[in-house]
Write a protein that binds this DNA or RNA. Structure first.
Lengths: 219, 219
DNA sequence: GTGTATATCTCGGGG
DNA sequence: CCCCGAGGTATACAC
């Protein structure tokens, strides 16, 4: 990783056109070739950047970064305060716990949390407008579509509504019911779900984890 | 801006739990207090981060970053290879051109791209759930609401559907039609739009720019 | 402050 | 490769 602190101007031409007036900034060049221009604030997002794969050409105080898609980033260095490089090596990567995919896994393993005697038919059941998280059947054989969210907001209810509309057209699924499952279901989402005959369930993540087998734990 | 290259482990506890095993990484601390942990690859997004406002406490080789929302980032330094600081100053900021606002401008200037003889009534026409991008009328006097996107996805169709439902309640707009305009309209969005009687149009941005007057350009 | 809409979103998974 | 959905989305702007 190369780190350059310099007074510079930057121009990006590609999906949009963007220009940075002259100022002192950090230019970060990673081992995979990606380039990011950082100011001293504004969260982690750089002011300007170019992702790999790309080509970096240095010509005196002018850097040209181009990629196969035809985008270009031009950096003009007016004054360089530091220019250092470090070997970081391969990163072992981030281990995450507590995201929607994990919730979905846990619920797929034990759908009874969502209602009496629910049995899983399949996860990511496909429709022509995208896959529904869980397709189940209850004891009476009625199909049940489940949308799982970490935070249950109005968008999720809309999403489940679209799926139900599509699934209802399949004769084998006629009469399908909807369940909206999330750790927290916001008031607006509750109202919308109820007005559409969709049942909503708040899930206790820690309780679900408690019944989980040890080797499923990530760390 | 402080830049530290170090062998470290990192743990985040907050909206989820995430762990980084020991490896050499860049730790960037910006003037506003935000902290980002970068590996030597993988676009501009850091592996882990904590945005301002937060509190950084250094205790030997252990850094604790906490924020008012109760999230925490713990960095354990095992070996420090570099630790430098630089004064960057206030950044004048980015000048952008070519985003959705620009597309909307161009279409407002020439709505005929969207359909025969469309005439603009007004941009950002207000409804009680937000403004619709363009309100037009066609030759027959029928109102037409236009939602403009750079990339036409399912969310945009939902958005336009909500506006149409509101606008239909206005007697002066009864019978209003919807047009979903984007540089690219994704297949799922096409299906949903058609099933709701909304016409979709793909826009050629470069062709629109070609007929644009020079003083509309930003730089 | 909450809600809504945008983003050069980034990132990962599946066909 | 594209399509699609999730994100600790972040960010700006309106109410």
């Amino acid at each position: 990783m190369r780190l350059v602190i310099a007074r510079c101007t930057v121009d990006y031409q590609g999906r949009l056109a963007a220009h940075l007036p002259e100022a002192v900034r950090l230019i970060m060049v990673k081992a995979d070739g990606c380039v990011a221009i950082h100011a001293d604030g504004g969260a982690y997002k750089p002011l300007n950047w170019m992702n790999a794969p790309n080509t970096l050409r240095e010509d005196g105080g002018t850097w040209s970064v181009t990629n196969p898609a035809g985008e270009s980033l031009t950096i003009t260095l007016h004054e360089v305060f530091e220019d250092s490089a470090h070997e970081l090596g391969q990163d072992p990567g981030l281990v995450k716990d507590g995201v929607e995919a994990h919730l979905q896994e846990l619920l797929a393993a034990d759908p009874s949390t969502l209602g009496d005697d629910l049995e899983l038919v399949r996860r990511e059941y496909p429709t022509d407008i995208g896959p529904v998280d869980l397709l189940c059947r209850d004891r009476s054989g009625t199909a049940v579509a489940v949308e799982v969210k970490r935070r249950g907001e109005i968008d999720g209810v809309e999403q489940l509504t679209r799926y139900l509309e599509r699934l209802e057209r399949d004769p084998a699924l006629r009469g399908i019911q909807g369940v909206f499952a999330a750790q927290v279901v916001k008031p607006q989402a509750r109202v919308l779900a109820e007005s559409r005959g969709i049942r909503w369930v708040e899930i206790d993540y820690d309780a679900l984890r408690g019944i989980e087998v040890p080797q499923m734990r990530l760390f």
